[in-house]
Write a protein that binds this DNA or RNA. Sequence first.
RNA 1: GCCAAGGUAGCUUAGAGGCGAAGCGGUGGACUGCAGAUCCAUUACACGUGAGUUCAAAUCUCACCCUUGGCUCCA
Length: 459
Amino acid sequence: MLKIYNTMSRKKEKFQPIQGNRIKLFVCGPTVYDDSHIGHARTYISFDIIARYLEYKGYSVFYLQNITDIEDKIINRASELDVFPIDLARYFERRYLEDMQALGVDRVNLYARATEHISEIIVQIETLMDKGFAYETETGVYFNESKFPEFGNLSHRNVEDLNIHRVSPDSKKRNPGDFALWKKKDVEPYWDSPWGKGRPGWHIEDTAITEEYLGQQYDIHGGGLDLIFPHHEAEIAQMESASGKSPLVRYWMHTGFLNVSGEKMSKSLGNFITIRDMLKNHDPETFRFFVLSTHYRSPIDFSKTTLEQAKNSIERIYKVIKTIDDAIESDIPETINNDNELNDKLTETKNQFIEAMDNDFNTPEALSIIFNYIRDVNRELDIDNISKSMLKTIKNFLIETGSILGVDFSGKVYTDDKSEDLLDVIVEVRNKLREKKDWELSDLIRSKLKELDIILEDK
RNA sequence: GCCAAGGUAGCUUAGAGGCGAAGCGGUGGACUGCAGAUCCAUUACACGUGAGUUCAAAUCUCACCCUUGGCUCCA
C-alpha cells in the first residue's frame, strides 16, 4: 500500500486517487530565463521516478508541467541582452527540454506555457473579482489575503508573523500579504485585459493551467521545498477561492534542496552548476543514481566525493549484469535445483523493493535491497550454482527495476563500431601472447590501454 | 526573532521500541601468471550530550549542545 508524505498534514498518508486509478500530477516547471541547474535536475528527476513508479503500480498518470515564459526575470534578462523576452524564453525553454532529455526525464505528458493561457488566466482573475476575493488598484489586480483565512496552512505559518517581517510593502495594497494576479504594464510584453494592458502575476498561471487540464481539484502537486511559501500558498488561495472547493490538491509533495559541497548553491557564492556543466563531467546515469541514493525530501550534497561514490556504486550493478551476460553465454545448465531457492529470494526481493518504494518512494532503501540481492547472486555465480534460465530471470528483474528508477542498468559501452573492432584485434593478439605466457608484453598492452582509459580485465 | 530539517562507523545514506544496515573506502584471505572483478573475513565501541519512560530506547519524552535551511527572487 502506497504512502505519500503530504506537506499539508506533515504526515505520510495512504494514497488514494480521486478518480479510479487515474492520477493527475502537476509539478511546477522552470522560469526559463537561464540554463537550469542541478537543483532543478534533482527535483525533476525525483518526480520522474515518482511518475515511473506510479505507472509501475498500474496507475494511469497524467503528468503536467508548466513553463513560466513571462516573468520579470525574463524581461530583465532580455533587456540586458537586447533581445525579445519571448525569444529568450523560447531559447531557454528549448535548452531546458534538452537538459531533461539528457537526464532521461521523459514522463511529462504535457508542458504548458503561461503565455498560451492568458485567456484562462484572465477568466480566473475575473472569477476572483466577481466573488470578491480580488480588488483592482492603479498598479494591478491583487488577491485579498484577508478573505482567505486558510492562507499559511501549507507552510504552517501564521500571517501576522509574516507581516511583521515584510519589507516595504506596496502601499496601494490593502494587506501587505496580498499578491498580484495581474500587473498593469503598458510596455511590451503586455496583453489586453479588462483591467487594461498588463501581464499576469507569477502564481496565477499555475492554477489557470491546472484548472484547464486537471480540473479544480487534483491528486498530486509537486515542486521544490522553496515553492511552498508563498507560491503554493497562493495557488491554494486562488483556486479554492475561485472554485469554492477544497482541497485544491490531495497530496503536496516537496523535494529537498541540493547543496554543493555543503553550501547552498547560489550565483553569488560562485558554486552555481548548470545541468550542462555537470554533464560534462558526469554521465546522466551517475547523476540519477546520486539522486536516488538520498530520499527525495532530504537535502542532498553534490560534491566530488558523493558523485564518485555514486559512480562506483552503480558500477557494481553494471558489473553484475555483465557477469550474468557472460555466464549466460557460457556452458552452464539450463535449469538446476538451486533455482527454486533463488526464485524465492527473487520474489522476496521484489516484495521488499515494492515495500520500500511504497513507503513514500524510499529509493535509498530500495537500492540497498537490490544490492543485497546482487550479493546473493554473485555468491551463487562464484560457485557456479546457478542456471541459465535463472540468470535470465534475474537479469530481467534488474533491468526492469532499473527502468522503474529510470536507470539503464544494462551497462554502457563507450565505443563506436570501428574502435570496438580494433579493440577485439588487440585483445585477440594479447590472448595469444598470454597463451605463450608472454606476461611482459601482455601487461604492457594492458597498461597502455589503461592510459587510454580502457580497462581490460581477464576472466 | 519566528519556522523547519537534521546530528547513525573513515565517507555517503536508510532505518524509527526488541535479530547492530546498504553502498563507497581501508586491511587480510580465496581465486588469478599478475592485475581487476567476485566471494569470504575484517575494519568498524554505529546512532550529538545528559536525564527520564520501558522488561527493552538509535527509535518515545524532556532539557541541552551543534549543523543546515526557510521567512514573499528561488526546483
